[in-house]
């Protein structure tokens, strides 16, 4: 895969656990990461709930895959765009989201935040700048 890298955006619009969308998206991102493209994720509408801090699925009897978002940095997925309006509409704040970071190998492995809060107009531009958009 030495040809030009393409820009892939995974658009996540569903809360986790109620449906399989969020988990499937995450699995596709991890598998797709092997192809070494420019990958970023967008969290819009209920999708922002995928990044909620303090998810505890023990009583619900489901696998807590929220920890897996923290592995994305290892897979060179370092841009997780979160839509501000989607947070606002749901009464959420950035502080309610879990920290997701990556290690910057060009900066002595400093931990840097992967979450990027953008407004709706910026999100539209991000979508318009992609080669491939995959929706979940």
């Amino acid at each position: 895969m030495s040809e030009t890298k393409k820009k892939f955006l995974y658009v996540n619009r569903k809360a986790p656990y109620g449906t399989i969308y969020a988990l499937e998206s995450l699995e596709v991102v991890l598998i797709g990461a092997a192809f070494e493209q420019h990958v970023s994720l967008a969290f819009i509408d209920d999708g922002v709930y995928q990044l909620m801090d303090g998810q505890d699925t023990a009583a619900a009897g489901m696998k807590n895959f929220s920890k897996t978002y923290k592995a994305l940095g290892d897979y060179e997925v370092r841009k997780l765009y979160v839509e501000r309006e989607s947070l606002d509409e749901r009464g959420l704040k950035v502080e309610n989201l879990m920290p997701v970071t990556y290690e910057d190998e060009d900066d002595d492995y400093a931990e840097k935040p992967s979450l990027i809060v953008v407004d709706r107009a910026e999100m539209s531009k991000i979508i318009a700048a992609q080669d491939v958009v995959l929706s979940f």
Partner: peptide, 18 residues
């Protein structure tokens, strides 16, 4: 340990790196 922390087994490439 990796599974405990991230709930996944890493791809070989990631295993090598880590």
């Amino acid at each position: 340990d990796y599974y405990e922390e991230y709930q996944i087994a890493p791809a070989v490439r990631i295993l090598v790196k880590e």
